[in-house]
């Protein structure tokens, strides 16, 4: 078991003929992910990766033809909202949007619409999902994690890799790694992931990696206190970030006194979460 993606995932890649899309499709296929189709409007009928993966003009046709149940989006930011709407309307159950730089008003509309349809979104501006040994959807390097019982949920990209790598160094494996992304408005949040990990029989521990900005970590802390029986270890990035400055990620900003790392750490510790001082300390804090 795992959450969100596994061997049964049948994946569509939106933007498969683009540079990033094609590169990462190859990596996903090499990892063993079942990529059943790609979509690039205007390139329907072509094939990519040694003619193994068919390209369609629309997600609807791709899904009807291949029975896909998930989609990963690599299209440029200006087309990302359209791509998410299209996937949702085509009946895809899980959408993972890797694209960075999607306007926040677009994301508010997308999120509002997807919630009405009951479609799960991960991202945008995220590294995607990795269930070691089964499937990866997105850009997380597959070789830095091994299968195991630690669920990882994170707002970051390379910082997540750092943690996966540190876990692997001590032989700890991962059930699923969920990169929820660094944007102020996104799909799946910490609480969604925590709830899934709590219910997943393979997961025994959870690592939560947050950063400055917003109040999602505080809300996650309240949820952990109320509902989590599995131990949670945390890390919060941005303790030295100056207020009012956006630290790379669109959502990583301390505004009007909210979003401070210190407040998040305090909230998590009050909920019984062991918070690491630096990412390489995380494995030693896991029971």
């Amino acid at each position: 078991m795992s959450i969100l993606v596994d061997k049964n995932t049948r994946l569509i890649v939106q933007g498969i003929t683009g540079r990033e899309g094609l590169f990462h499709t190859q990596k996903m296929v090499e990892y063993g992910t079942n990529v059943v189709a790609g979509v690039t409007p205007g390139k329907g009928g072509e094939w990519v990766l040694d003619d193994k993966i068919p390209v369609f003009d629309s997600v609807k046709i791709a899904r009807e033809t291949t029975g896909a149940n998930a989609s990963v989006i690599f299209v440029p930011a200006r087309f990302a909202a359209d791509a998410m709407f299209e996937a949702a309307d085509a009946g895809v159950e899980l959408i993972v949007c890797i694209t960075e730089g999607v306007p926040v008003l677009d994301m508010m509309r997308v999120r509002s619409y997807l919630d009405q349809k009951g479609v799960r979104l991960v991202g945008p501006n995220c590294p995607g999902l990795l269930t070691p040994g089964e499937a990866k959807v997105g850009i997380i390097p597959g070789e830095i994690a091994i299968p195991g019982d630690v669920g990882v949920v994170s707002r970051s990209g390379t910082l997540t890799y750092e943690v996966l790598y540190a876990l692997k160094q001590v032989g700890r494996g991962v059930s699923t790694c969920v990169g929820i992304g660094g944007d102020p408005v996104n799909g799946t949040n910490f609480i969604d992931a925590l709830r899934m990990f709590e219910e997943d029989p393979q997961t025994n521990y959870v690592v939560l990696i947050g950063e400055i900005g917003g109040t999602d970590e505080e809300k996650a802390a309240a949820f952990i206190k109320e509902h989590m029986t599995k131990p949670v270890v945390g890390f919060i990035a941005g303790q030295t970030a100056p207020p009012g400055k956006r630290m790379g990620h669109a959502g990583a900003i301390v505004e009007g006194g909210t979003g401070l790392a210190a407040d998040k750490i305090k909230a998590l510790e009050a909920a019984g979460v062991r918070v690491a001082k630096h990412p390489e300390e995380i494995p030693s804090l896991l029971p």
Binding site: G157, L159, F235, G238, K277
Partner: peptide, 25 residues
Amino acid sequence: MVNGAGLAMTTMDVIKLFGGEPANF
């Protein structure tokens, strides 16, 4: 100089943790 925003913030934090002061993100 770091790749990735979260890791860049973390690198600053770890410098501070060990008694230094970061000059930039």
